[in-house]
């Protein structure tokens, strides 16, 4: 597993993707700085623990930056091997295919998490830690959970449709994570966004009107944690299963 992890890190950090990676963690800081300089901090007291700057950071990091980083990492984890036709070398060695997926997932998540957390902390410094300790804990937890969840989901999409992984991941994000997750139906409980919002509400202590719960998320921490772990674990397990079972054709049919 260690060799695959090292290989994946060199693929992620050694090629052109590293510039995109750098951009995805730097630009949010610059954006936050710009907003702070132009608009200043939000005025007035905010009741009920609603801090606009904290909500902005939640929408920026767990709901956007983490998705972009997962696109670069999880979505491409397999397709880059397939399109480079290097998968042959990995699949003809005595290593279970699920281990290859797991090693790439763990390495990618472990490498990108410190970068996005660092970026988040810088942004939080710029807006002077809105909401104090509770929102700081909520944002950090949601950011790491979001990265882990989207990386797993995009790895699964990459395993299912490796040649269209990026496009399908973006479609999935738009349709499922942005639209469907707000639908007041049970199916929104299958989205990562729903549980990430629940996690943010429960840790930050932000109260929700009861009627908002079905589409925004719950306020109990245990179901939120369990939900995000279930989404992440299921997606990753399915990705490992798919890669073990399916064929990856790297040659043109005769």
């Amino acid at each position: 597993m260690g060799e695959i992890a090292k290989l994946h890190l060199r693929q992620l950090l050694g090629g052109r993707r590293v510039w995109l990676l750098a951009g995805f963690v730097t630009l949010p800081v610059l954006l936050t700085l710009s907003i702070r300089v132009v608009a200043g901090l939000p005025d007035g007291n905010f009741d009920d623990d609603l801090h606009p700057a904290a909500v902005y950071l939640f929408l920026l990091y767990p709901q956007a930056v983490c998705m972009l980083l997962a696109l670069l990492d999880g979505a491409l984890a397999l397709s880059i091997e397939l399109e480079g036709r290097t998968l042959t070398y990995l699949f003809t060695r005595p290593v279970p295919k699920w281990k290859l997926v797991l090693a790439k997932y763990v390495a990618g998540t472990a490498a990108t998490a410190p970068l996005v957390v660092g970026s988040l902390l810088l942004s939080m410094v710029i807006v002077e830690f809105p909401g104090g300790l509770r929102w700081t804990a909520a944002l950090l937890t949601c950011t790491v959970a979001s990265l882990a969840a989207y990386n797993a989901i995009y790895t699964l999409i990459g395993a299912l449709v490796p040649r269209r992984a990026m496009v399908l991941c973006m479609l999935y994000s738009g349709i499922v994570e942005f639209a469907l997750s707000f639908a007041p139906l049970t199916i929104n409980h299958a989205t990562a966004s729903y549980f990430l919002r629940s996690l943010a509400f429960s840790i930050s202590g932000l109260p929700l009107p009861p009627e908002a719960g079905p589409f925004l998320g719950g306020t109990e921490i245990v179901p939120a944690v369990f939900g995000i772990l279930a989404v992440t674990g299921t997606a990753l397990a399915l990705a490992m299963f798919v890669v073990t079972r399916r064929e990856f054709v790297m040659i043109e049919p005769v």
Binding site: G84, R85, T88, T92
Partner: peptide
């Protein structure tokens, strides 16, 4: 177990070029 016993040199010119 079989993969331990076989070596495969593919046709395609594919590498981790870094």
């Amino acid at each position: 177990e079989l993969y331990r016993r076989i070596g495969f040199c593919p046709e395609q010119d594919a590498f981790y070029s870094f």
